[in-house]
């Protein structure tokens, strides 16, 4: 799956490296990184920038008291993280999503959005952003829509195309609130995406525009 041709832009990757990215966006970057070697190499260099910046700070003296307290605590420490049971999650699911997915994508409580699309909400971030998985059936289309906020998408399985081109497994993209787009899944298989939307989606078709008040309510 190391074939992604659409990557997080550099300043987004830097914010991820700095730890200053909202966690919902970091989730998308992480899902992309797990299978993108070139972004992984960039990230290592960006981490080095952070390390150098930290080293350039004027050191702030730590007390002997703190040191002794830590030294005294060492013998009693156990690594809770190391005691985790082996995962039962399907290996095709990115590790950063294991917190939401117990086994595989099929077992999730998918809800019908339209004839072509099912979705399942995974969680909300502190900034109100909605984190969800979208499943588009083979050849299916998402209604033309714009966003009130940015939308971050990573393709987990399958592929789709929109006005911007063809996107494959691992591809990462950001749509801003001005972009209007109509994703269409390719015919060969269904497409599953991780999507983070910062504000409600606005449908722009004549009939579906009537849906907007109801959808917006979901963000209240």
């Amino acid at each position: 799956m190391d074939k992604a041709t659409n990557h997080p832009y550099d300043e987004l990757l830097a914010a991820y490296s700095a730890g200053s990215l909202p966690l919902s966006q970091a989730l998308c970057v992480s899902a992309h990184l797990e299978n993108c070697k070139s972004c992984g190499q960039k990230l290592q260099r960006l981490n080095r920038v952070g390390s150098q910046l930290m080293q350039q700070l004027k050191p702030a003296r730590a007390s002997e008291q703190l040191k002794n307290r830590l030294l005294d605590s060492l013998d009693a420490l156990t690594d809770e993280a190391a005691e985790h049971e082996p995962t039962k999650v399907d290996p095709s699911v990115p590790r950063c999503l294991h917190q939401f997915i117990d086994s595989n994508y099929n077992d999730l409580a998918w809800k019908r959005v339209s004839a072509d699309i099912h979705s399942v909400e995974l969680c909300r971030d502190s900034n109100g952003a909605k984190v969800e998985l979208l499943k588009i059936k083979p050849g299916g289309s998402a209604t033309t829509h714009t966003h009130l906020g940015d939308e971050y998408t990573v393709i987990l399985e399958g592929s789709f195309s929109d006005e911007g081109g063809l996107y494959r497994q691992g591809d990462f993209m950001v749509r801003t609130d001005n972009d209007q787009h109509t994703p269409v899944a390719t015919q060969d298989r269904e497409c599953i995406c991780l999507a983070v939307t910062e504000g409600p989606i606005q449908f722009t078709g004549l009939v579906s525009r009537l849906l907007n008040p109801f959808i917006r309510r979901g963000y209240a």
Binding site: L23, S24, A26, S30, R95, Q99, C123, D125, S126, V131
Partner: peptide, 16 residues
């Protein structure tokens, strides 16, 4: 945080 997030960062930042 004053604002709750349901996202656990543990498995997001394990790069190194």
């Amino acid at each position: 945080s004053r604002y709750v997030t349901e996202i656990d960062p543990t498995d997001i930042f394990n790069d190194m």
